[in-house]
Design a protein around this nucleic acid. Structure first.
Lengths: 175, 175
DNA sequence: GCCTCGTTGGCACTCGATGCCAGTCTGACA
DNA sequence: TGTCAGACTGGCATCGAGTGCCAACGAGGC
């Protein structure tokens, strides 16, 4: 990660990473399927945690409220904000990273939709209703936008607050 | 495209495409920056058209209504549905294609947000308001979900109708 | 001491993508 | 008609990501 931040993601080769980590190039690919996974590896595991947490929330809670809750509990940044900001900025500026992160978020989608479908009372074998998918996709989009805005303001604004404002804008009748 | 549909996107090499097109491998990369561009090349141009069309819609029209209008006018499929279905299915099933298509849609985002900001009356130099970004991102997410649902139902449902249902689900107060 | 299994590293290879250079074609111009 | 510029093309070399295969090493069980 230090190498990435120092000289850029695309400019850093696997050879450099392997050398810095004291392992062989071949071993690197045993731990990380792709170069992007070094940065985005947590996202997959985080998705699992979000899903598990979502299951514990009563089905009576409306989709948007339930999603809002689980997003921020599973967040658990744990890293110093200054570092997070640098990583986030790299993510938003590197096309391949950005694409992969969205791809990972699509996996979140698959993990969360079944629960949201139940929440909406949609038949399990109804393939045609886009409601649950749309809500989850929009919620994740808002999460993404919140992060993007957060980086744009150099971390000045509060992430959760930005998310709320994003959701409000999307769902406001006057929009 | 025939090669892709026949043997799959990833299984098709540039050499095969070049040979089939009667050009050299090197020339291929002069026409298409990447292999994905063969499938997704239109998306970029389509984005430009969407933006231009959006500019012609009075600022008094609300964001969601304006976006809905421009999405379907710039659609212009023009292809037989059976073929579109196969291509769409390939797009949703091939990770690299899916990632690139999302990347292209992110470019749409950048193109459309300024107009939506004006529509919402947001100051041009207000970096912190996520409203316009959130609306555009959600709308594009709904478009994506509509397409995905459309493929899942083998093209049975109407695409525009699916989009409307997706948006309605997202914006419904009871969600 | 032997055998097994998991981890590792090296090697070769495929494939996407890029830079460089030389050849070809066309159209303008004297 | 000869020539010159510029666009298009192909071939070549190269880089970097990612994969398959096999041999070597080391820890632990029997």
């Amino acid at each position: 990660m230090a190498l990435f931040l120092e000289q850029g993601f695309e400019q850093t080769t696997i050879d450099q990473i392997a050398a810095a980590a004291g392992i062989s190039r071949r071993s690197f690919f045993r731990y990380f399927g792709t170069k992007e996974d070094v940065v985005l590896g947590d996202l997959a595991a985080q998705g699992l945690r979000v899903r598990e947490r979502l299951e514990t929330i009563p089905l009576s809670v409306a989709p948007w409220d339930a999603l809002r809750t689980v997003f921020w509990e599973a967040d658990a940044l744990g890293q110093p904000p200054e570092l997070m900001l640098k990583i986030a900025r790299m993510m938003y500026e590197t096309p391949s990273l950005r694409a992969r992160s969205i791809e990972k978020h699509l996996q979140w989608q698959e993990m969360l939709v079944p629960n949201i479908r139940r929440r909406l009372g949609i038949d399990a074998d109804d393939q045609e209703d886009p409601a649950a998918d749309a809500i989850v996709a929009s919620a994740i989009a808002c999460l993404d936008i919140a992060g993007q805005t957060w980086t744009r303001t150099d971390g000045a604004a509060d992430l959760a607050d930005l998310y709320d404002r994003a959701v409000r804008a999307v769902r406001l009748r006057s929009g």
